[in-house]
Amino acid sequence: MSDEGMSVIVKTVSCVLVVPTVVFGLYVIMHGHLTPGGGFPGGAVMATIVALFLVAYGKDGSRKILKKDCLSAAESIGLLLFAALAFAGISVTFFSNFLANTGNWFGTVIPFGPNPGYLVSGGVLPLMNIAVGIEVFAALSAIMILMFSYSGDDSK
């Protein structure tokens, strides 16, 4: 039995929903060092779109759109990026925040006192959030695709 998914309305709406979901996910990831959230919740938000695609397009349709190999490569790259950022501080100590308060990239010196939240600050923290976001998005998507492909009445 081939699984071609749901009606064209559902497919179209899920395509439309890609934009707000990804934007919100990226927002949560990018503001991880300022507001509640961060790489893990943001990546999970972005992975919901994969769940939506799996349901809308079914097993056969979604296999053309979502590539498991790409996702597992992205997973490794996210983790390696995180480890590389941790290693980059090793001239001081492992995990040291070598970018914070340097005045350079992501190193904005924050004046003392209440402030509205400076996005480009925090040193390696936002970068690590991005790495975690990539990893969590890819890993959760891969897990969902795997579980979906082994479920149901297909012979596979």
């Binding site: 597992s72 490569a73 390696l80 492992f94």
Partner: peptide, 16 residues
């Protein structure tokens, strides 16, 4: 730190 970090990096890069 290296004793923990090196196997971790090796683990993440192994699939690549």
């Amino acid at each position: 730190a290296l004793a923990i970090a090196l196997p971790l990096v090796a683990a993440f890069a192994a699939p690549l």
